Simulated assay, not measured.
Amino acid sequence: MPRPIKAYIHTDAVRHNLDVVRSKATKSCVWAVVKANAYGHGIEHIYPALEAADGIALLDLDEAVRVRELGWKKPVLLLEGVFTDGDVKTAEEFGLTVAVHCDEQRELIVAARPKRPIDIYLKMNSGMNRLGFTPGDYPAAWERASTAAGIGNITLMSHFASADEDSVDWQLERFDEATRDIPGPRSLSNSAATVWHPQAHRDWVRPGIVLYGGSPSGLSKDIKTIHLQASMTLRSEIIGVQSISAGDTVGYARAYEAEGDMRIGVVACGYADGYPRHARTGTPISVDGIMTRTVGRVSMDMLTVDLTPCPDAKIGSTVELWGEQVKIDDVASSSGTIGYELMCALARRVPVTVA
């Protein structure tokens, strides 16, 4: 028998969350962002839930090809663009739209001499200071791209640095000023801007984490009123129970010491499954639908939970590590990270079922 741990992917939740995005950005087209293998969910698993999206955006060329081979006929956007002339040829073959964030990428496209013009998203560095042309250089970059052989339609693009924490207006003003005399559709909004900053929606929004039920800020309370649904549940079982007394310790480094008599449940899930090793004692978890907490350090293949609130729990009891009841953002916050990372870190050894 395999270990009882399993991940469940909820395609109905993805459909619901896409509907929420639509309700927030009613006048915009929607890129469904599926980078990092659909945030760890598996592109093939969630692909059927994205039919209402206007396009799919991702990072890896191989993933873009997979999406086309699955039958996707609508636009596909490579968010970091192309890196070799071979990439340009693949983009042409599969009808991909590509980001262009530097002159070298534009020159790659021109040098490859595509028979069909390749549509691009010309990226501005409006304050993130990662990729893109500065606002001062952007009009000239657009001029060079608009007259370049092999380049088709141009969409104006930027990315917000702190839409999950504060205003986007400072970047929006830079973008609007630099593009005031430049025609073409615009795309700026990530998940946070899509749900919290309607003034930034423009022609295309690019939601990612919210499609999977996660919070852009990393805090579940921030999306409580948006009514997103968890698209991934990580579930396992109790495989051992120990009764301990005051002063007894649990796990490596004796990191947890019991204050009194209690029962400890051992769960078949550890950091080799993708559960965060740095999850602190007190990280939320549920046993047979009852909320409780982890205790002690997370091991490679196991972790331990406090069964005090769950007097009927026993070997075989169901444990939700994260999902609809245990918010992935709460687990992540207790572990010093964000829900994005936990989704992407789901280990290959964990069986996946599309629910």
Rank of each mutant, 00 (worst) to 15 (best):
C102S: 15
G251R: 05
L219D: 10
L108P: 05
G282E: 05
R293L: 05
S28V: 12
L234T: 03
S243M: 11
T147I: 01
K73W: 01
A230C: 10
A25C: 12
L108N: 07
A345S: 06
C29T: 15
T281D: 10
G296Y: 04
V88L: 01
D12P: 10
A272F: 05
G152V: 02
K74I: 00
P351I: 04
G260A: 12
D103Y: 15
V326M: 01
V250D: 02
L219I: 06
K224D: 09
V65K: 08
M128R: 09
G336Y: 09
A192E: 03
P276K: 02
A13E: 02
L321Q: 03
K115P: 04
Y275L: 07
L70W: 09
I46V: 12
K314L: 01
V82S: 08
H197G: 00
R280I: 08
L307R: 06
R348S: 11
S187G: 09
T233K: 10
V98L: 06
P311C: 07
R293D: 07
V305Q: 04
I120Q: 13
E257A: 06
A253D: 15
W170I: 15
I315P: 08
V295L: 11
W322A: 00
L228M: 02
E63I: 08
V210F: 10
E259D: 00
I154N: 14
A112L: 04
V100M: 14
S126H: 15
I154H: 12
W170D: 15
V350D: 02
E257H: 00
V354P: 12
D87G: 03
P276R: 01
Y256I: 03
T281Y: 02
T84W: 07
G208W: 08
S334L: 10
D306H: 09
A345E: 08
W204A: 01
V21A: 13
P311G: 03
G240D: 11
V21Y: 04
D54C: 02
G247K: 07
F133K: 03
L122A: 09
F83N: 08
E63C: 06
H101N: 11
H45A: 13
I151W: 00
T294R: 08
Y340G: 03
V33H: 08
R297C: 15
L70R: 03
G251V: 06
L342Y: 03
S162T: 13
D60S: 12
K327M: 14
P2V: 01
M302D: 13
E93I: 00
K24D: 08
P48I: 09
R3M: 03
L122S: 12
I223T: 14
E63M: 10
I109G: 02
A25G: 07
A38N: 02
S167T: 13
Y138P: 00
A111P: 00
L303W: 03
D85C: 09
K327L: 13
V205M: 12
P117A: 08
F83G: 07
A347I: 00
D329R: 02
L96G: 04
V110I: 12
E237F: 05
V295C: 04
